[in-house]
Write a protein that binds this DNA or RNA. Structure first.
Length: 261
DNA sequence: AATCTGCTCAACCGCTTCGCG
DNA sequence: TCGCGAAGCGGTTGAGCAGAT
């Protein structure tokens, strides 16, 4: 149902995502959070453009995304909100926790558009429906959801999961120390800086960020990412295998940077 | 059984908006 | 204020699937 994978002229992979790619992207984001979509695929070891990664994450991999099975209430709310906002799918999605703008848009074109038209014609016949109610599947539905109620009940609302929260990370000034970012659990993590020099400086040089992220290393035996686990939730990208060696000088340096030793 | 047709949905494309220097 | 790069957004496309013929 998806486009077959292929490579464009720039060597970027396009088309359907493989489970392995999903795994890499999810692992990376769960461990380090979102900081820069354009740079992220490079460090996550993906041959995708940032835009593609962002779309995949937002529409599919994000932990709070629900798939399929729209309830009547959701359908009703979408139709109501579409009356209110028109085709501003992101606004509509912001009011439906777990639903993405893309999915709502698809759902609208696939199912609700015709129903809305039908309702419109029937309502112009009867002129008896209020603005917030209509006939759905034979029975009248009235939706009266306060704008913030759903949003606030969302564990990770679409609004807060947007770029303003996760992907607008700016590299901290070299002498200001690291500023904390939040990972998906709301736990402070040390985000990778998009400025290679900063880390090179503090780690004493090396090609730290140019190495691809090794997703397998961050998964525990249950298949869940072992992200933000120890050390008070602080974590760092560890692209080098030898970083996991307790005797590694890099590990020692890393621990010193974290103030663990 | 084979073919056709419409539905579905993940993904792409291009434009707009936003933030920063 | 302006220009540029990154992210966001909405429209569209492509291909698998299921039901109809």
């Amino acid at each position: 149902m998806v486009r077959a994978p292929f490579y464009d002229k720039n060597g970027m992979k396009k088309g359907a995502w493989s489970p392995e790619e999903d795994h890499k992207l999810r692992s990376y984001i769960e461990k380090f959070g979102l900081w820069n979509w354009r740079e992220l695929p490079k460090y996550a070891g993906l041959e995708r453009c940032g835009k593609s990664c962002r779309l995949r994450w937002m529409n599919y991999l994000r932990p709070d995304v629900k798939h399929g099975n729209y309830t009547e209430e959701e359908d009703a709310l979408i139709m109501k909100l579409h009356q209110e906002y028109g085709n501003r799918w992101s606004m509509i999605a912001a009011r439906l926790p777990g639903r993405t703008d893309n999915e709502i848009k698809n759902h609208w074109h696939a199912r609700l558009k015709t129903r809305a038209k039908r309702n419109q014609t029937s309502s112009t016949d009867s002129q008896s429906e209020s603005a917030h109610s209509w006939e759905g599947e034979g029975e009248s539905m009235v939706i009266d959801t306060p704008p913030n109620m759903i949003l606030e009940s969302s564990r990770l609302s679409p609004t807060t999961s947007s770029s303003t929260e996760f992907s607008s990370f700016s590299p901290p000034p070299i002498d200001s120390g690291y500023t904390s970012n939040l990972n998906l659990s709301g736990v402070a993590v040390e985000p990778p800086s998009s400025s290679t020099e900063i880390y090179e400086d503090q780690r004493g040089g090396g090609d730290f960020w140019s190495e691809p992220f090794v997703a397998d290393n961050v998964y525990n035996q249950d298949g869940y990412p072992s992200s933000s686990l120890g050390r008070g939730g602080f974590d760092m990208p560890l692209p080098y295998d030898h970083f996991y060696d307790d005797d590694s000088p890099d590990l020692l340096l890393y621990q010193m940077m974290q103030g663990w030793v």
